[in-house]
Design a protein around this nucleic acid. Structure first.
Lengths: 239, 239
DNA sequence: CAAGAACGAGAGCAGTGCTCTTGCTTTGGG
DNA sequence: CCCAAAGCAAGAGCACTGCTCTCGTTCTTG
């Protein structure tokens, strides 16, 4: 289905990509609120109304950028999960260290792309309802973390954290829905750790740590390690 | 210095308050991006240019709302910290439970005022530099948490968490600057827990938990308790 | 080859933040 | 008491935004 029928179709996907690229450029430079359809069109040498042939509204353009941003973050996380640390044998990195590596990869992507991060993990646009095609890409980081925990569980290296009774049913549902093979205790701790991870990144990126924390990377590393422990991954060096 | 000189001065503070009230109303209803000076002026029966006598720009109006929102969150946290739980004697609430109570108070305020929460803890306005008069109100929740930990430490009820070496110096600086009387180990864990707390709230509020977590209050309670433990507050029931 | 769909350009609408000028009212010093 | 100075509301206007509609042109396809 990826066969290109004619010149027109080819031009369409090219122009669509050019629009997204220019939009992403402006997003990275000035942030989402200052991204304007007209200036994108201007930069591309076309008139603003022509742009509506490719994106029915500004929100749809932003949605495309949101999907791309989620995909980029997810890809960064997956890369960090797959890549063995320098000088280590592939795949034998202890789960807790993999968890920290993934966390750091996400943080570094966020620091490198602050406006795109803010677009996906900052305040949502008030009237905006996330379309279905964002939920897949949005889940990728979470799935990477789930994979790490599942691997540790299968290897018998997971210490189950405690689980409040009111949470058990919900945790079992989550495990069945998107974290098969992970015990409910770990799933509940996992989603909490997932949110807390992004809390650390958001606070740093959104300026809440200004005049407060200086050694942000060290604090993040330590906290990410602590979060790994909280889901049951044993510290490196613990047999 | 709160003496009102004349009718003009009195009118000024009244109009200023009316503008802020109307702005807050629109903020609560439609969110920050849709808050327009013109519509505020319209609703107040004045012309838009007249509004500039009271707020030099839209950003300044938003800043005023930001300060108010920080103050409201801080006040909610302080109230929760002071109030003894129902049926308990004042002041004898264990620190870990006070921590959770404050956390829940912040979360409840956020759920009740999502747009105002997003304004202060969501994506910052790209060009925006937080004026000095926001840092005081912004610190209030943090100070409440610090107070709880300090109280526990003074009562000998604090189990010091581990502290990475690279963080020690920064933690000692922070302790000296705004957390006097709290050991550096706890300060480092505290700022991390502080960020993670808002990470949980933001994920819930900004829709990241949609289709993922259902029992959000239970998950939050459990996580807040876990965070209390992470800064060294002992679980209730532990002697 | 001709009907029809896709497309780019332009004008136009309603809305925005913000500035400037024009008069009116309140204030405070001589 | 009176009048200049300062504070204020109103209106017009500028440059910008997202978005719609129309009008020729170009490409695709039956």
């Amino acid at each position: 289905m990826s066969t290109i029928r004619g010149a027109r179709e080819r031009a369409r996907i090219e122009v669509t990509a050019a629009i997204k690229d220019e939009a992403r450029k402006q997003l990275a430079e000035e942030g989402a609120p200052k991204l304007s359809l007209r200036s994108v069109a201007r930069e591309l040498g076309m008139v603003s109304s022509a742009l509506y042939r490719y994106f029915p509204s500004r929100d749809d353009l932003l949605t495309a950028l949101i999907v791309d941003a989620f995909d980029a973050i997810g890809a960064a996380a997956e890369r960090a999960a797959a890549e063995p640390a320098a000088g280590e044998r592939a795949g034998v990195l202890p789960p807790a260290e993999r968890w920290v590596a993934v966390s750091c990869a996400v943080r570094e992507w966020a620091l490198a792309h602050p406006h795109e991060y803010a677009l996906v993990y900052g305040s949502p646009v008030p009237g905006y309802i996330a379309p279905m095609d964002t939920v897949g890409p949005a889940a990728r980081v979470g799935l990477v973390l789930i994979d790490i925990v599942r691997g540790a569980y299968r290897a018998g290296e997971l210490t189950l954290p405690p689980l409040a009774d009111e949470l058990r049913a919900d945790a079992e549902r989550m495990a069945a829905e998107f974290a098969e093979g992970v015990p409910p205790e770990a799933v509940a701790a996992l989603v909490a750790a997932w949110a807390q991870l992004f809390g650390l990144i958001s606070f740093e990126l959104f300026g809440q740590f200004n005049r407060v924390v200086e050694e942000r990377e060290a604090l993040f590393r330590q906290s990410a390690g602590e979060l790994a422990r909280s889901v049951g991954l044993r510290d490196a060096g613990t047999d």
